[in-house]
């Protein structure tokens, strides 16, 4: 089981290339490198590839290619894989950590034995790496949470998490792009829309990008929220120069 990369069966429309089973930047970099390489190669019959923490899922059309042919072509790419070639975009996301938008902040602070301001400072000091998107359109699993803030998920998930909620659990942070059920700890909220069907790129960021959080006052949050609602906020301005 410890021999990676390992090819795994996902039926007759896909297979997985597993580079590791944990959450690890070096492993994820290889996943992303193969994701990019297959995208560039234009292999016949490939529909798309879905990167995740440690596995790349390669989806294909069995009427246009076969597992045997495609697996052979993908295996041939593995030795030359350049895992460091691509640097993603860097985003700055405004977050208001006020108590009414952060229903779990006090509880998180208590369990981490610090003041809420310290939780905010440590969360806002991080640069988070997007390992993958999934679960719902635009939801990013971002690694790099300060070790002192790491807690298991809530024992009872919420039925309704408000859209834009900024949350932490285990080693990760995320932003809920939609109102949905959720089991992470809610420590703030962003007024920006991670998903907007009216935008040329409806989903703001992608796997391999990095994110920093910028604390904003409640007044700034409300102003930004109004601009976002009115459609006068330019989401491209959230991308920082490298």
């Amino acid at each position: 089981m410890s021999v990676y990369p390992q090819i795994r069966d996902f039926g007759d429309t896909g297979f997985g290339v597993a580079f590791g089973d944990g959450v690890d930047r070096a492993v994820n970099a290889r996943v992303m490198a193969l994701h990019a390489a297959i995208g560039d190669a234009g292999l016949a019959g490939v529909i798309e590839t879905i990167p995740s923490f440690g596995t790349l899922f390669v989806q294909y059309d069995p009427l246009q290619t076969s597992r045997a042919d495609l697996e052979g072509a993908v295996r041939a790419m593995l030795p030359g894989l350049q895992a460091t070639a691509h640097q993603g975009r860097l985003w700055r996301i405004p977050v208001c950590y006020d108590a009414d938008l952060a229903p779990d902040l006090a509880d998180v602070a208590e369990r981490c034995k610090m003041k809420p301001d310290q939780v905010i400072a440590r969360h806002a000091a991080g640069t988070f790496f997007i390992y993958m998107l999934g679960f719902m359109p635009g939801l990013a699993y971002m690694g790099g949470l300060d070790e002192t803030l790491q807690l298991p998920r809530r024992s009872s998930p919420r039925v309704k998490v408000p859209q834009g909620s900024v949350a932490i659990a285990e080693t990760m942070t995320t932003i809920y792009p939609w109102e949905s059920p959720g089991g992470w700890h809610l420590i703030g909220r962003t007024p920006i829309r991670l998903f907007d069907a009216a935008r040329a790129a409806p989903i703001l960021y992608g796997a391999g990008d990095e994110v920093r959080f910028q604390p904003v006052s409640r007044q700034d949050y409300d102003t930004l929220a109004a601009r976002v609602s009115a459609g006068s906020f330019d989401h491209a301005a959230l991308e920082l120069a490298r």
């Binding site: 089973d21 879905i50 995740s52 923490f53 596995t55 679960f135």
Partner: peptide, 29 residues
């Protein structure tokens, strides 16, 4: 660790009862 899901995947959560994931399935699980 979450990973991609194929159309027709047979997911088995902790209760041991299988779930067939089809057209509107989430992308990863």
């Amino acid at each position: 660790a979450s990973e991609g899901i194929a159309n027709g995947a047979v997911q088995v959560p902790g209760n041991g009862q299988p779930i067939l994931l089809i057209a509107d399935r989430q992308t990863t699980g």
